[in-house]
Amino acid sequence: MADTRIWRPPALIESPALRHGLTLAVILYLVWSIGGLDIDWGRVSQGLPRAGRMFERMFPPNFERWELLVRGVVESLEMALVSSLVGMIIAVPIGLCAAGNMVPKPVYLAARAIIVVTRTFHEVIWALFFVKIVGFGPLAGVLTLIVASVSFISKMLAEDIENMNMGQVEAVRATGASFPKILLYAVTPQILPRYLGVAIYRLDANIRHSTVVGIVGGGGIGMTLTATFKRYDYDFSLAILLTIIALVFLGEFFSSWVRGRLR
């Protein structure tokens, strides 16, 4: 049993210099970032008791003003529906133009630029702008969600078109079909199920996002929720939050059910 062979557990990163260097870098980063942040530690240290008091006021959730709640939820749902449908229609031409295998390069770059810029800015930023342009209310929210939906659906659509089977396109092109006919006969059948799936998913996502556009005045349940926070009506806030959770849960359930049937 005089076995002198030693075994070292494999490290995630082979080179010791790199490994220790990275560990050091992470520690330095933590020190630098936490130290550099503008943190009012006195205020933060009150956090736990404050959280306790807040939860005390949250429970039990208060559903007394359910009419307000229902109105907000219905508005959110309507915003999600309208924006999803408009979004999925506008996304078709943009998605098509953003597919590198279907269109000339300049068109492709322009479409990609639209997708990148719309994706980069958070919904709330778009909502801020739309509120400035068309005023407070659901219209600003709907416009915001349309931008987000178009960005998302057209990106997915473009990827699907780029990944589709080009053999079928060639076969249809070989029959002498024009570009629109190719789209109709070789592209649409291949991507339609996934496109519908993405659109349904976006509907579900829009239900979730419709709550946030309300925070900057874009209508829907989010607007009601922000108001309760401003007035410290935490028991009503919790009621709204629970409703949102239930709504998102149902939406997800519905969305996965429909997508399951599309396959």
Binding site: I6, W7, P9
Partner: peptide, 15 residues
């Protein structure tokens, strides 16, 4: 977690 097995286990494993 740390993969610190007793040396006799490592020796047995090599065998």
């Amino acid at each position: 977690w740390r993969r610190r097995y007793p040396p006799q286990d490592v020796a047995a494993a090599f065998d």
